[in-house]
Each structure stands twice: as C-alpha cells, then as structure tokens.
Design a protein around this nucleic acid. Structure first.
Lengths: 149, 149
DNA sequence: CTATTGGTTTGAGCGCGCTCTAAGTCAATA
DNA sequence: TATTGACTTAGAGCGCGCTCAAACCAATAG
C-alpha cells in the first residue's frame, strides 16, 4: 500500500511538478502525505491513484473549487458516495456540452481550411516562408473570410 | 455590408460583453470598428463574422496570442492564406489531441460513476440531502476509491 | 568539517483573460 | 439650458492555476 515514492518520482509519473504537488496538498486537494524521517514526502499507491483521478478531472476542465468539494466529500467517508456520484454526473453533463461545442467548432474550422485550400494558388501542403507568389490586388485590412454574410 | 449594429447589439448576438468587445479591439484582435457620429461603434456583418470566428477559436482553446498572430496574417492580405491555413491546421491537430484526452477521461469517469452505483445502498438517482442512511464503519480520511492499486 | 544535494515551509509573483473604475464626451430630452 | 444616459478612453484590479523565491533543514561525499 505504501510504495514510498518521493515527490520527484511522483512528479515524473504524473507530469505534475513537485511545486504543483505541494501546492495541491497545501490547498487540501491532496490529503497530508506520509513523511519519511527528515520530513520528506512518501507517496503510496492510493495517493497516486487519487492524483491520477484529479488529473482526469483537470483534463475535463473541472475547476479546483469543485475538486475541493469532491475531496471534502471523499474525506467525509462512505456516506457521501451518492453525493460524489451526483457531483461527477453533473460535471460530466457539462463536459458533454463542452465537447459538443468543441466538435461543432472543429467542424467549422475544418471547413474554413477547405475554403482556404480552394483559394490557394499552388497547394504546397507544408508551410513555406518563400511563398509570396501572387501579389494580388489585396484589400489591406478588412479582408473578410466569408462566414454568415 | 455595414449593418450598423451597436456594441450592445453585438454583445447580445455574440454572448460577449461590451467590455470584452472593446478589449478585443484594444489589443488588436478586432480591427478598428467604424464609428457613428459621436464616436459610437457601428459593427458590420464582416465584423460579426470575424467575431464569430474568434469565438470558434476560443471555444477550441486557442490562446489570444495565437489569435493575434492569425489576425495579423489576415490583415496582411491574401498572400498569407497558406500561412493562415497552416496555423489553423496546427491548432486543429492540438485540439484533436485534447479531445482524445478528454474523451478518455470522460470514459474513465463514467466507469467511476458505475462503480459508485454498485456501492450505493439504495439508488435514488437524484441528489437527496437526507440520505445518510447507513453509518458504515467508515475509514475517516484515506478512503481510497480504487483506481490502479 | 564543510559542501553539496535534495528536500521542506511560507508567502509573494505571474500570465492569462477578462472585468471594472474613473473621468470624460456627446446627443437627446425635460 | 440642464440633465440624463449611453457611450468613450486608459488603466487598474481580479480570479484562476500555478510558479517561483527565500530561508531553512537533513543526509551524504569528499
């Protein structure tokens, strides 16, 4: 259960910095970590699991304030399981909405790229700085891009 | 082409605040908007289209610094079209990676919810504050949740 | 016995993306 | 004419999520 990992080990494993790990502990997102002689943190597998869970919440854009609420419920024991589930479900519902918005925007941006393709004189697909071929009659600033006119 | 919309009209249409619209113009994300007598902004359809495009970039988490780069290319004329396309494609590639990460996390969180379901004593699916039925032998703090032990 | 390494703490600072304030200008109305 | 109210500007302030700095301590190497 206690795999005595140092803070740097955990940093490498999780991609967080040691700074951030201490910060998370300070604000209560991570409960106090066991210490070796000398006061150095020793993370157990349960700690790692919790951190990885936090990272999943972070990846799905849960604000720290909500993670703190979740952590509070968790530390209050098994009687809060339904509340934790509720919190998670609410969050996932928000995430679904965000994902749909993102997907819509991605689709629109891909269409814009298609549009650019049709506008390009030669279509070299990689970026090439020497690519100022046609000095078209360019309207300087208000070069609109053609959405919802 | 000029549909003489006031800043508040545009705010309502786009969901941005008038403050934010002025801020975007100040930092160069939006090029100087035409003015009515008295100096009030009058937005045209091309302006609206550009703002909606910016919102799509924002929804897909493009930082303002990159939007500024894009805006700069745009105002430099048609010769920058391939660079704009490149910028957009790079961005979309990042977005795809982010979307995949989010989807993986959503799946994991949904599994966690399933797990909670199996742990719950009675399963009332809506949140109920009076739900402290079983005072189980609860481990106070280190109530681990069971990922990767 | 130093010097180095690698951790510790508290608190300050920072980058981002707004958000708000203060002071001023203008157009229309009482 | 006086006042209202919507708009303008430049600049300060804020919430979030880190990120860093300064000072200190413990263990090991030379």
């Amino acid at each position: 259960m206690a795999s005595h990992l140092s803070i740097d080990d955990v940093a490498k494993r999780t991609g967080l910095t040691a700074h951030t790990l201490r910060y998370y502990e300070r604000i209560g997102l991570i409960s106090p970590i066991a210490r070796a002689a000398g006061g150095q943190r020793r993370y157990g597998t349960a700690d790692i699991a919790w951190i990885e869970f936090l990272l999943r919440l972070r990846t799905t854009h849960m604000p720290i304030s909500k993670m703190l609420a979740f952590a509070g419920l968790r530390s209050a024991g098994d009687s809060t399981i339904s509340q934790r589930r509720h919190l998670l479900q609410t969050h996932l519902a928000e995430v679904q909405i965000e994902l749909e918005a993102m997907n819509r925007c991605v689709a629109a941006l891909q269409e814009k790229i298609e549009h650019y393709h049709s506008l390009e004189p030669c279509h070299s697909s990689t970026f090439n700085p020497e690519e100022n071929l046609p000095d078209d009659h360019t309207k300087p600033l208000p070069a609109r891009t053609g959405e919802t006119p």
